[in-house]
Design a binder for these strands. Structure first.
Lengths: 194, 194
DNA sequence: GTCTATATACAGATAGAC
DNA sequence: GTCTATCTGTATATAGAC
């Protein structure tokens, strides 16, 4: 029932920034959404810029694949792929507007990325390399494969308006399309496994 | 040597809108870029909104695959894939910031999409369906395959800041990475061909 | 068509009472 | 901590001289 003012601001700011972007967001919109006074935003966070940085940093960390922990050593490479794709698609289905927000924000201000850890990517690339050495996987470039996997997951979300229009799908039909996505991505990835 | 004022405005507006987005763009920046007076923007285009609509519509049309005309009936499906991927990646390498601009803009204002033709997508999906019937291609969902192809092409561009950081690549190294992209996408697509 | 000057609106941010 | 009132800058847009 009780939410602190600071927490209310953060939740409202997430919603407004993710929806409207930094330049499109209004401090008044955030205050309205949080049902508090506009002056409180500055009392707690000093400036729009500072509030935004905090929201963006938090969201980027959620956006990066945190699935690495789930992966077990005994899994086959295909099972690992499935864990990554599945975990990622689930997060995206819960936060469909998140990727376009993050990608656009980092384009306009890449400095924020410097504090981000690279272990997740390195870990996944390591798995792929090992699977190739084992003969478990066909010879492909690990970095390109990882980018392809992420692209296949993320693109239908960042391109939702244009893709649903081009495919002639209503919002409901496009949701259904997204739900079939995992199976279709895995069909492609299976072809790479020996 | 001679460029009409209207043309100078359009070129400047393309540059500024694509770089900064609608909300981030300033009419003064466009005027400076075009080396004309700010009042001229309103004389020729009435409002920022109208100028933006015109730029965005033009850019979306360039963004959609116009490669369909190149495709010949005698080509194998793999050659058709290669034509699409190659044409698309070339356009992207010449306009690296275009996709993030269009995708973000259509997210904020999807109405603009209504005037866009769907033939390009339908044409490509038709080719894929036919190839499956012929036994030329493994059984995959044509719509998903098309979205996967586009995602593999576009994602490395829209995610450039985050991907180059995660892979630990400098700008030059990332450019090289992008230049190898075609080969790696085709490696994946080849596995789908019988 | 092109300029200068200005109108109008609204954004982020702060001062100060309670 | 929370509010109202207000400051200050700057954005889009227009009026009107040339």
């Amino acid at each position: 029932m009780e939410t602190s003012t600071e927490e209310k601001i953060i939740q409202a700011a997430e919603k407004v920034f993710v929806r409207d972007g930094y330049d499109g967001a209004r401090m008044q919109s955030i205050a309205d959404e949080a049902e508090i006074n506009k002056a409180m935003l500055h009392y707690y966070f000093r400036s729009k810029e500072k509030l935004f940085q905090q929201i963006l940093t938090g969201k980027i960390k959620a956006f990066l694949p945190t699935i690495l922990g789930i992966i077990q050593a005994e899994m086959t490479i295909l099972q690992k792929f499935e864990a990554v794709v599945d975990g990622y698609l689930k997060m995206l289905s819960e936060n469909p507007r998140l990727p376009i927000f993050i990608l656009f924000s980092t384009y306009r201000n890449p400095v924020i990325l410097e504090q981000l850890p690279r272990e997740v990517f390195h870990g996944l690339i390591g798995f792929i390399k090992k699977a190739i050495r084992n003969g478990e996987l066909k010879k492909v470039d690990p970095e390109h494969l990882l980018v392809s996997m992420m692209g296949m997951c993320v693109f239908p979300y960042v391109a939702k308006p244009i893709a649903s229009h081009m495919l002639g799908k209503s919002d409901d039909e496009y949701l259904l399309f997204l739900r079939n996505r995992k199976k279709e991505i895995m069909t492609l990835l299976k072809e790479l496994v020996n």
